[in-house]
Amino acid sequence: MLSLWVYMIYCCVGYCSTVPSLRYVNRHGNDVDVVESLGASRDLLNNNENDVDSRGEEWDEPRSESKALDDNAMTAFLNETKKLPQAIIIGVKKGGTRALLEFLRLHPDVRAVGAEPHFFDRNYVKGLEWYRDLMPKSLEGQLTMEKTPSYYVTKDIPSRIYNMSKDTKLIVVVRDPDFLGLKRVVDGKYFHFNPAKGFPCLKRPESTSKPHCLGKTKGRTHPNIHPDVVQKLRDFYKPFNMKFYEMTGHHFGWD
């Protein structure tokens, strides 16, 4: 670790071209270039560059003015590690998964990657270490999350997630998804109404940064649907809803 910091400082003053490549041997016995491994997560954005909802923006981490001089803060920084997600938002598409993720990211006990990893459907062959490296660093007790709605419609996803960890919670947006065991933190002071967009944006109360709004594809006006069409949809989905109630052990009372 000390060698890595010295190397990075050396690079900052413009001498990288004259310094031998810093390398290490990973757990699989492969020789890896540190600088190349630091850029590995760029593959995520490259893979999803054409997917509008995949390009989630990152929040600025709230830091107090004295944090750099705080011994406890430095200890916490050194104890941060990357963990595989303990909860994954898997769907449904266009059901508010981005909004849910951004609301959860407001919570101090939640760390989540903004972009959609698409690990279990598009990048599974890259392995769990690649997947873990995409995750943000977190402390003991913090919950690591990601969201990829296409997991909901991909056949092999349940078994793949189970093989990673049978304790990982899967979140499907229906009406009231609230079972992560988090203490209540987010309230009215975390929201700032944006008159141009016509809906609230998110803001950390302790932060001086500007409000964080969802993308322009969010908050669109829903079209008016003829009541007869709505009734036909209700009739069609009724048996599927009943089966869903049995599977979850919860009756949502949908028509």
Rank of each mutant, 00 (worst) to 15 (best):
K169V: 12
I225P: 08
V173G: 02
L134T: 08
G91Q: 07
T217N: 11
K216R: 12
I171V: 10
R105A: 03
K93L: 02
D156W: 03
Y124D: 01
F120R: 03
Y237M: 14
T217A: 12
V110D: 03
H107T: 09
V13Y: 07
K216D: 15
D60N: 14
K82P: 01
V125G: 10
P177V: 00
F252D: 15
D51A: 11
P211M: 13
R132S: 03
N163M: 10
R175V: 10
M135H: 02
Y15G: 15
S64K: 12
F77S: 14
L45S: 06
Y10F: 12
S165E: 00
D53F: 04
D228I: 10
A76Q: 12
G253E: 09
R220W: 06
L182H: 07
M242D: 15
L84S: 08
P223C: 06
P117H: 04
K232D: 12
T221V: 14
V173K: 13
L182G: 01
D178E: 13
A115I: 05
G96P: 01
R122V: 07
T168A: 01
V173N: 10
L170A: 06
E116D: 06
S41Y: 06
V25Q: 10
V35P: 00
G91H: 02
G249K: 01
K232F: 01
V25Y: 07
K137P: 11
V186H: 02
M247V: 08
